[in-house]
Design a protein around this nucleic acid. Sequence first.
RNA 1: GCCGAAGUGGCGGAAUUGGUAGACGCCCGGGACUUAAAAUCCCGUGUUCAGCAAUGGACGUACGGGUUCGAUUCCCGUCUUCGGCACCA
Length: 811
Amino acid sequence: MKYEFSTIERKWQARWQEHNTFATGSEADKPKFYILDMFPYPSGTGLHVGHLEGYTASDITARYKRSCGYNVLHPMGWDAFGLPAEQFAIKTGTHPKTTTEHNIRSFKETLQAMGFSYDWSREINTTDPGYFKWTQWIFLQLYDRGLAYMSEVDVNWCEELKTVLANEEVEEKIAAGYTVMRRPLRQWVLKITAYAERLLADLDELEWPENVKQMQRNWIGRSEGTEIDFELRCHNRKLKVYTTRPDTLFGATYLVISPEHPLAEKLATAEQLVEVKNYISRAKLKTELERTGLQKEKTGVFSGSYAINPATGEPLPVWISDFVLTSYGTGAIMSVPAHDQRDWEFAKQYNLPVIEVIKSPHDVNEKVFEEKESICVNSSNSEVTLDGLSFSDAFDRMASWLERKKLGERKVNYKLRDWIFSRQRYWGEPIPIKHYEDGTLRTETNLPLVLPEVEAYHPSSTGESPLANIKHWLYGNDEHGSFRRETNTMPQWAGSCWYYLRFIDPDNREKLIDQEKEKYWMNVDLYIGGAEHAVLHLLYARFWHKVLFDIGVVSTREPFRKLFNQGMILGEDNEKMSKSRGNVIPADDVLKNYGADAVRLYEMFLGPLEQVKPWNTNGIEGVSRFLSKVWRLVYPLDKNAPDGEGTPSKLSSGAMSEELQRRMHKTIKKVGEDTENLKFNTAIAEMMVFVNELQKAGCNNREAVETLLLLVAPYAPHIAEELWEAIGYTSSISLQPFPAFNPELVEDSVLTIAVQVNGKLRGTFTAPAKSPKELLLEEAKKVESVIKFLEGKTIVREIVIVDKLVNFAVK
RNA sequence: GCCGAAGUGGCGGAAUUGGUAGACGCCCGGGACUUAAAAUCCCGUGUUCAGCAAUGGACGUACGGGUUCGAUUCCCGUCUUCGGCACCA
């Protein structure tokens, strides 16, 4: 009988569905395992082979864990709000809901055709009112705790298009000839900074790739420093700066404030005023990119005012420059050009003095010296001296002196900014807030607040979302008076911030999640997804999770115990898959040509899961051949039988050779360990070795074949089911336990021992395992190819590693 | 510039408490079966030198050093590629 993958795969997919084979169990007596994929945005372009990599890995793990006796939660859903469907709606008038539904259907078909063992009864969709009711509910919890607030935030505003642009759209529009400027707009902002310290500290307990944790640490960007007040001459004011190098205060020769600093214009003296005003308005026109962009030259303008260095009493000119960020620290810095690259460049450009206060190996007028591992010099006044101190001692002494004199205080700062949470879009969760005429805000109590139908999906000309045009939805009355609804919607991140919780209890109408269920299933034991979400998605989700922890909705401090990033799959040309390059391999194509089992195997056989690696459609032949070999162990090739006929051969019940037995137990061990550790490529290689040896030996021993099928089942479940049935079983192989190995049979009884002379391989011989050193030495000296390298030489040393090798050091 | 990861045959990759480099697979070459082909099976396949051949030698894990009886693995330096951040004071 021929191996017809398409018939078999359809048959088993239907049967799994019919029998609810992969429904999540509820028995709390079993250990649980929650394995989660980063759920997809159902785009119109469909899935390609790259998308399937992580899903295949998680499915193998889910099936493997089930066979190890775990109660497995393995769900899938759709992150379905988002820009592409809205843009398509603007172009064609198709409701985003229609587009989304259509795409979901297509995505789901592909995933089901892959034979993934998702519990589809738990499918969720972030655009479903039953789902986003709780997204809105979480927002209100944030709001009630002061973690959601409104603020004037600069956005990218395009006057011609009357719309707000996302950062990634800016460049494209400018290239198309539009002007884009920064303009403040009232926005909802989430106070993620209030959780900065916990988001940083709790990273330590997570089993995440070290680079992801490091990226999050850098993103949070904690630094310890000092805020210092500088007295302004001629003004009865102080200027506060933040520095991480108070040890260099004696070397500060000027101050710089950002153009948006509230004092910027006020500090301008009469003769400098025009120039200052010009500079400030020019800065406004610059986009974020132009201001922070690569390697740009520093610009600045002198305000005309001076401040006093509290350590030296010297007057310091105050400059205005856009290299100083408004939103970090105090928006003002003290410049120590001798020991900071940026300050040095600025000083050289505007001819400002450079004073060495950290002992430098070269002239600081020629080159900056930024190392901390040196001692302070030129740093004394009548009350305090830092001379001779190391960085940390000098830091402490200066900070203490400033604090004692009430001139400053120690301060911890973070690069992390609060999260701008509103979008001027239609296709997102409405923010459930009502604005009353007297300016008060009230929360919408009747959730979910659903999207109204609209005529056109274009943004309104005021920069508000299309919702601002829907008058009947927009305005209303209640016992508090008449109100206008919030027209902003939530960003796409919102729905994905907590979806892993809803999978645990998807149909709960009373609560976000049942507490007992939450306690049983959390944390997510393994979260698999792309590295592109290393920072934002994972940080936002951790933030919401911590808030939910604080209000008692969840019982764990962190959502995802273990994280794994699968490496991207490149096109056959070694480039990132993209429509424009034309190198996309659509999932449906390879599925049709090779079948789900082969695609699953090949996705994993390509290389280590975490690695970036190119796709090569030719390579599928290899795993296809492997599957045929497995098939023929049960249905041997019979030239006389016409296709479509033939019966499974009778499996032999006699004993296997000892060699094959050892091979089998080694394979069980290796495949089990590798699967556990997500090293699927080597597990598959090991199964190939086993099959090759069975085939070579002409062995169709029942125990060997059954074991093989059980090992193959998590990887290529359809063929495993079909053959399992063919050899006489009536219950699904997916419900069978993973085979166990005999520890005594995983080691070879006879080993090949290498013989080296001066570290070079000169021959080998075989010896029983655990042979004594003396015997190995004796044998090694008898090996013919070795003898000639020993002749006429003196053996100075003999090294014997039992079961491995003998090495003679000769002279 | 800073942080992180990685460089192994024609290709994807395997092997690291230091112990026979190249498992497994693709491609390619040769053979068997076949009227023929497909499928399948068998053999070969890092480079290079010597030899008719069996075979034997040298070199070889980005590059240059070092430690060691022995290094893909450990140490020092250099180069390259990829990912992230990018004036955060």
